[in-house]
């Protein structure tokens, strides 16, 4: 043990100084979800299979759907990605999702703008 210990004095510490250095997530990583509204057919299988009820699909027009994802409810199991028959959902590598404002944890993917908008906190 002593030899091993004295050797490590000369070694660089293995600590990774997060947040200054960040690690790359592996390809299969299950991070924040991404929703592609144009692919969605509104079958709501993802809603049915989600263990925590974190995802909601709303109909906002003729063949147009939006997804509301509660990031604080999501357990990042990516079952919805598997359940989706049209591959409208996708898990990204994004992990840094901590927020002080709880309202920002509710992400709405809107078909109209085709862009992610973050709804302001509402009480």
């Amino acid at each position: 043990m002593l030899r091993q210990v004295l050797k490590s004095i000369l070694k660089k510490p293995v600590t990774i100084m997060y947040p200054y250095e960040k690690l790359e997530m592996p390809d299969k990583f299950r991070g924040k979800l991404k929703f592609s509204p144009e692919k969605c057919i509104g079958c709501k299988m993802c809603m049915k299979d989600c263990p925590t009820g974190a995802i909601t699909i709303n109909k906002i027009g003729e063949k147009k759907f939006e997804a509301v994802i509660d990031l604080d409810k999501c357990i990042y199991c990516a079952q919805c990605v598997d359940s989706c028959p049209k591959k409208a959902l996708e898990a990204t590598k994004e992990v840094e999702l901590a927020q002080l404002d709880k309202g920002k944890l509710r992400v709405i993917f809107d078909a109209e703008s085709q862009k992610t908008t973050e709804e302001e906190s509402k009480k």
């Binding site: 210990v5 004295l6 490590s8 004095i9 510490p13 293995v14 100084m17």
Partner: peptide, 11 residues
């Protein structure tokens, strides 16, 4: 610090 470095940590 020495303790940490001996354990291969930053300290």
């Amino acid at each position: 610090r020495i303790y940490a470095r001996l354990q291969n940590r930053f300290g």
